[in-house]
Design a protein around this nucleic acid. Sequence first.
DNA 1: ATGGTTGCTTAGCAA
Length: 257
Amino acid sequence: MRVATWNVNSVIARTERLLRWLERYQPDVLCLQELKAVDDKFPEVEVRALGYEIAVFGQAAYNGVAILSKRPVSDVRRGLDPAIEGEDARLISADVGGTRVIGAYVPNGGEVGSDKFEYKMAWLRRLRVYLGEHHRADEPLILCGDFNCALDDRDVAKKDLHDNTVLTHPEIRAAVRDLESWGLVDTFRSQHEEGGAYSWWDYRMLGFPKNNGLRIDLLYATPPLAATLQETFMDRDERKGKKPSDHVPVMATFSDG
DNA sequence: ATGGTTGCTTAGCAA
C-alpha cells in the first residue's frame, strides 16, 4: 500500500498538479492539507475519474483537509471533536482496508508566545488525547500531514534562520515527540537518518533556489504497520516549475495489503 | 533583516 501526504496550498489553484501527480505515482491513499476551499469546490469529478474515493472536510479560505483513496473508505470522522461546531477543518480520518488513516494540518503557530502559538500547543495536546481515546498503537494506523514542526537540526537547512521559531521551538518539538511516544514511527526518518531532505520551502526570500528548506510534513505509522515499510520518498521535484505548492508530497510504501 | 511571495477574497489575513 502506497500512502502519501501533501499540503497543496489551495486545491483549486493546484488541481492540475494534483491530477498529474496522482496519475504519475498512483498512491493508494493521499491525504491533502490546506484545501482553502469549501467541500463543494473540491475537484471531485476529476479526482474520481482517476479512480479515487474522496472524503473532504473543507473550509472557506483557510485550512481544509481530505483523504483520497483507491480502496473503499469507511467510518470517516471530521475534526478532533465533532461536537465542536465551526472548528478549524484540520483533521480527517477514515478506515482504508483495515488501516486507520488520519490526515492532520497542525496549526502554524504564528509567532512564538502569541495566541496562535498557544493554540498550536493546545491542538497538539488534543491530538495526543485523541489518539489515546480512539486508537491503539498495536493496530495498523497512519498519522500524516503538515505538522509545522521540524523535529531536529537534520530537518532544518539553515539553522540560524529558524532557531526558536514556531517551526523549531522546543515546546513544539516536545509536543510532537509526545505524539511519537504514544507509538508512532517517523517513516521517512527511519530510512534516512542523515537528514538534509526537506518538504517545505518558503515562497519568500528565494527559499527554494537557496534550498532553505525544512522537513515539516511527516508520515507516521504504528509499529505493526512500520514493520512492513518498504520505501519512503519526498518528491522534491514537485516544488519545481510553474505554480508549485510550497510543500511537496511525502510518500511511504508498505508491503501489507 | 519586521523584508519577501502566494492564495483567498476583495484589503487584509494567514502562511
